[in-house]
């Protein structure tokens, strides 16, 4: 399995554990009398599961197993793929940090972090399309 696939899959597993941990605290907040700010993490949870875990797992497996382009260039541009990995994770982590803070402190000047997160994830998403498109072919 290529190194980049291992990174995507392991990052995905970390997000899965983080998502389950966080969702426990969010759900347990009321019955355990925990602080109200925990519920500000609610919107981020779905993205930890769907983007952090499932999507990264898929990208990692696809990078490894989809049909090769050519013998000389089997998987495409590896540096571009690493940039996508970085953008996706920076975007998601920025969101994880900024979105609850924006919910809790709407007047705090944190909008830039949400915009940066949106740009990073958008570039990563279309990067995945460009990266995997030539690998989707008949064998």
């Amino acid at each position: 399995m290529p190194r980049l696939s291992r990174m995507f899959i392991k990052a995905g597993m970390l997000y899965l554990v983080a998502a389950f941990t966080l969702s426990f605290w969010v759900v347990a907040r009321a019955p355990l009398g925990l602080p109200g700010w925990l519920s500000a993490f609610q919107p981020v949870l779905a993205h930890l599961f769907v983007v952090g875990w499932i999507t990264q797992l898929i990208i990692g497996i696809a990078w490894w197993m989809f049909p090769k382009i050519t013998k000389d260039n089997p998987r495409g541009d590896v540096r571009f793929a690493w940039i996508i990995f970085a953008l996706l994770n920076i975007g998601l982590l920025l969101r994880l940090a900024a979105e609850p803070l924006v919910t809790l402190y709407p007047d705090a000047p944190l909008g830039w972090a949400l915009i940066a997160s949106a740009i990073c994830q958008l570039l990563a998403g279309w990067g995945v399309v460009i990266l995997l498109w030539p690998r989707v072919k008949e064998r």
């Binding site: 999507t55 924006v102 830039w112 949400l114 915009i115 949106a118 994830q121 958008l122 998403g125 399309v129």
Partner: peptide, 16 residues
Amino acid sequence: LGFGFALGAWMLTAKA
């Protein structure tokens, strides 16, 4: 995936 991420990016930016 690309379209869905574009919609998400639009919403996140509109939130900011």
